[in-house]
Design a protein around this nucleic acid. Structure first.
Lengths: 126, 126
DNA sequence: AATAAGTTTCAAGCTAACTTGAGAGTCAAG
DNA sequence: CTTGACTCTCAAGTTAGCTTGAAACTTATT
């Protein structure tokens, strides 16, 4: 399977696939005489897993860390990275919740007609 | 007040202040004979408001939109941008909540000793 | 003056995940 | 053997919010 077909199967572009290769996320199984990349049939599965990981918020650097040196996806490594990602999400959730409540308060102050103070004064939340 | 003093007062660096100027967020009131920026005493307040806005998740581009052409912070514009930011946060919260629950499910599958399936299979969440 | 500290402008670098473009080579079909 | 569709590599561009560095100039103090 050449890169174009793999791209069609996975919904990625050929350049994205080449980029992943450069990042150490997957390699073609060989090259044709003319230098074209040849992919094994399981390459698409690998790309699906990468796409799923991205949807979970993992960066390519982190995704690379899910594989062993032999190129297999490691349950142990993945589990550890999953824990880290869970904590990261919880931090972001806390930040967003704080911003949300501060914005609600700001909105109230801005809407308050009686307050003719300069706009910037309304930001004195923090 | 010169840039160094303003930087000390606000906790920003001189280069950040120059960058904000380039982005149209604040201007020095004048220049000295030698070309040094001179800031009005309320410049610090403007920078505090910018910093507070950033903590609320507003980008510099958006913050610029809070000011009128005359350079005053507009309640109306700010209110409108606040609404938009609130919706944006809610979207991000939904994304994070989804990722969090998918990761919890993934963790369960990875921990399940009985599943000896290849690691990638566990990602078939989506 | 001389010196040190502060300031000026301009260009380039940083991260992330690719995309775009140039110029050239390959492959399959007719 | 020619055309058209693919593919190759390599370099540079994209966004955001600055930082870093170079080379030169200003200001205040001694």
């Amino acid at each position: 399977m050449k890169i174009g077909e793999l791209a069609r199967k996975t919904g990625l572009t050929p350049s994205a696939i080449r980029f992943y290769e450069e990042q150490g996320l997957l390699s073609p199984i060989s090259r044709t005489a003319g230098g074209y990349r040849e992919y094994a049939s399981n390459a698409a599965e690998r790309l699906y897993m990468i796409q799923a990981s991205k949807r979970l918020g993992f960066s390519l650097d982190i995704i690379r860390g899910m594989f062993t040196e032999s190129g297999q996806c490691s349950k142990t490594k993945t589990l550890a990275l999953t824990e880290i990602r869970l904590r990261e999400i919880e931090e972001q959730q806390a930040t967003l919740a704080q911003q949300h409540s501060d914005l609600l308060a700001l909105r109230v102050r801005l809407k308050d007609e009686s307050v003719s103070a300069p706009c910037r004064k309304n930001f004195a939340v923090n």
